[in-house]
Simulated scan of single mutants.
Amino acid sequence: MHSRDYFTDNLKKYLPENSINSIVDLIFKYKIHLKITKARSSKLGDYRPPIRTKFHQISVNEDLGKYHFLIVLLHEIAHLIVWEQHYRKALPHGKEWKAEFKKIILPFLNLSIFPEEILEALIVFVKSSFSSSNAELNLNRALKKDLNGSDILIEDIPDNTVFSYSGTKTFVRLQTVKKRIKCRCLENNRMYLFNPLTKIILIDK
């Protein structure tokens, strides 16, 4: 396993400065093999128990902002703790995981680590026991705003606006349907539901 100095130096790029020492403590306490991976569309991070190896393995996507990276890493460490205590007997995001995630993230909930807007949204999400979709949306909105303040999100544009998504197809925004935004693809006339925080490119029409 690498030295504390190695982790401290290499994590500066990915974590808020005042969180690094506490995270390194957790890495050594639980003997975590931490892997920073390329962006994955299917997940932000994952945890693998020490079934075939001697170490707990956690991976986190490298493209996350520092505050998002910290939250995802703590999320996965909570999975590790649940595994040590319950093995396969606990549900992945059941009451045991919720209790451990709340316990492990509480010491980080302060303004020396998170900016005010993210901290407020994160506290609301924690108080909801990670079960409020509105609280999760507000947290993700704050995290995206911090990372990509100049990006245009689909929730920012009015109905009937034309936009491009991922540089492929062209859409027109129609209306909000529950917690998604309904849009029509101009190429095939099909309807699609988008996450409000989807990054888009405006098109002049």
Rank of each mutant, 00 (worst) to 15 (best):
V72K: 03
L73Y: 12
L73K: 04
L73I: 15
L73D: 10
L74N: 06
H75A: 12
I77M: 14
I77Q: 09
A78F: 07
L80M: 13
I81V: 15
I81A: 11
V82C: 03
V82I: 03
V82L: 03
V82A: 02
E84H: 14
E84Q: 15
E84V: 10
Q85W: 02
Q85M: 14
H86T: 10
H86Q: 08
H86V: 08
Y87A: 15
Y87T: 15
Y87R: 15
K89R: 13
K89E: 11
A90F: 01
A90N: 07
L91Y: 08
L91K: 12
H93A: 03
H93Y: 08
G94I: 08
G94V: 02
G94T: 07
K95N: 09
K95L: 07
W97D: 00
W97N: 00
K98N: 04
K98H: 04
A99G: 14
K103P: 10
I105A: 09
I105E: 05
L106R: 13
L106I: 11
L106F: 07
P107S: 10
P107F: 10
F108R: 10
L109K: 09
L109F: 11
L109G: 11
L109E: 07
L109I: 13
N110H: 14
N110L: 06
N110T: 11
N110E: 10
L111P: 03
L111Y: 04
L111I: 09
S112H: 11
I113E: 06
F114M: 09
F114Y: 14
F114G: 03
P115F: 04
I118N: 04
I118S: 06
L119R: 02
L119V: 06
A121S: 13
L122Y: 00
I123C: 05
I123D: 04
I123R: 06
V124H: 04
V124S: 10
F125C: 06
F125R: 03
V126K: 11
V126G: 07
K127N: 12
K127Y: 10
S128Q: 02
S128E: 05
S129P: 06
F130T: 08
S131A: 07
S131K: 01
S131Y: 00
S132N: 06
S132W: 00
S133V: 09
S133L: 05
N134Y: 02
N134L: 03
E136H: 13
E136P: 06
E136L: 15
L137G: 05
N138M: 14
N138D: 13
L139T: 00
L139E: 01
N140G: 04
R141Y: 11
R141M: 04
K145A: 10
D146Q: 11
D146T: 12
D146A: 11
D146R: 05
N148L: 09
N148Y: 09
N148F: 11
G149Q: 09
G149F: 13
G149Y: 13
G149K: 13
S150K: 13
S150P: 09
S150E: 12
D151I: 08
I152L: 05
I152H: 00
L153R: 02
L153Y: 00
I154H: 00
E155G: 01
E155F: 03
N160I: 08
N160D: 13
N160F: 07
T161Q: 08
V162P: 09
F163M: 01
S164C: 15
S166N: 15
S166W: 08
G167K: 04
T168F: 14
K169H: 15
K169L: 15
T170L: 14
T170P: 05
T170E: 08
T170M: 05
F171T: 01
F171M: 03
